[in-house]
Nucleic acid binder design. Structure first.
Lengths: 252, 252
DNA sequence: TCATAATTTAAACGACCGTTGAACTTTATT
DNA sequence: AATAAAGTTCAACGGTCGTTTAAATTATGA
């Protein structure tokens, strides 16, 4: 067991340790989020690896994307995955969490806004659903390919018996519970069980759309294009809102 | 290139060839579907392999389940996969198609029944949706673990950018188009594009429920159990029917 | 500038991958 | 019973897998 030696030799990123310079920069960035630029925000090896992993994990799954594929796509050495992340699995979790925090933050911001707009009433189901979906749909339409791959990766992980529960829960459950609470408030008298199931159906519809399998295109003979985010955005919200209302009226 | 020699040596199952005896039995079974039993319907090696592959592909994905895992679980020799199916991928397609045909057949039967029950009106959206979902949900509740694994495998394939379009389309598109047509007839004046998208959301909600990731259980702190098919059955139909009606009323 | 830490490189590790060859056993046909 | 076909077994193939090692290189701080 040579872990001690290895750790001493150099695993800076692996355990979250920071050099003095890095600690200084981190502190300054905390104090002055946008002002300080000690140097050009260059694309680090960690970023390159996460970008490549994001894309390939989404396309071929965890087992289908090899570290040699990923490091080649990133243009870095094979060994650097284990140096910076410790293992292939930790690379996956790092990728999941990188953009997950941003998403959580904006979702909560929009939910708070919806609550303010509707006060003292609770926001409508549609408003809550939009606050949940729009941070994804707007990035899907306007953000770069990184976010695009990230959403496809979420689709893969969410539907995976192997990773779904652990990885999705760790990143998203806290925020999701707040949205479920908000949906329940928007539908007075609804049974919590119905809303939980409804949320499950919602994420199912969402993640299949994010997976971009191309099946909808083939099925509709080109009438629908699964990469047309405007078409998706116009329909997903109304669909799941109507579904939730239908459930709240009473199942069976 | 020794394929010719190999094929000569013995690949009976690989190219669908049949011995004289097998041909006789196949003919007799065509003529008298349930009457003829030339011998006990024993569980063949092909069946054992498909059963094991069904389970492991569903649990760990195509790349995550090795042929050594699968043959070990089936209790047969490693080489028999390539003898009977030709390749790992062809084993996957065989598994997909084995129960897919049964499902298609019963779905069409139920759709025809719904059409008869409602004639001369078109059947309601709910009736069409039930004809689509019930063949799955009833087997999920009452059939053996084989069907269970098969549905989880469908969930994996349907959400996979790697296999989704090709494998799902090949097995299901013909029947699915008839259901989409029936939904359109149940919602006069609806735009085909809306119904295609609605079907996409429907399968998303369905397949996430079939994947059994356990996330719903964790999210609801045990209030909902994702393996409770009665709870699912009571809610999925109403949810997607309400969603489709909501879409047909006009998106945006 | 110089020691030290952080990062990158290249090579290799043992394990496992899907697939194949060839011998062997069982089943079917004459 | 003899012959052929179908099915099974075991061992091995060349490759690729995630991970580790030790040395070389680059960046950092006194």
């Amino acid at each position: 067991m040579l872990a001690g030696l290895v750790a001493f030799q150099g695993d800076g990123g692996r355990r979250g340790e920071l050099s003095a310079r890095k600690a200084l920069r981190a502190t300054l960035e905390l104090l002055f989020p946008t002002k300080i630029k000690m140097s050009r925000p260059k694309r680090t090896t960690k970023d390159k690896l996460m970008d490549a992993a994001e894309k390939l994990f989404a396309k071929r799954g965890f087992h289908g994307a090899s570290l040699r594929d990923i490091t080649a796509a990133a243009g870095v050495d094979l060994a650097l995955v284990n140096y910076h992340f410790g293992s292939k699995f930790r690379l996956l979790t790092a990728v999941m969490e990188r953009r997950g925090g941003i998403l959580n933050e904006e979702r909560l911001r929009r939910l708070a806004q919806a609550r303010m707009d509707a006060a003292p009433q609770p926001p409508t189901t549609e408003a809550v659903v939009d606050a949940f979906l729009d941070p994804i749909l707007e990035r899907l339409a306007h953000a770069g390919p990184g976010w695009h791959s990230y959403f496809a990766l979420i689709a893969y992980v969410n539907n995976s018996p192997e990773w779904g529960r652990k990885l999705m829960g760790k990143t998203f459950d806290g925020v999701v519970r707040q949205f479920i609470q908000a949906v329940m408030e928007s539908l007075p008298g609804s049974a919590p069980r119905d809303i939980f199931w409804g949320y499950n159906f919602l994420t199912g519809a969402l993640t299949l759309s994010l997976a971009e399998t191309g099946r909808l295109d083939a099925l509709s003979d080109g009438l629908c294009r699964s990469d047309d985010v405007a078409e998706l955005k116009a329909r997903l919200g109304p669909y799941v809102s109507a579904g939730l209302r239908g459930l709240a009226r009473g199942p069976r």
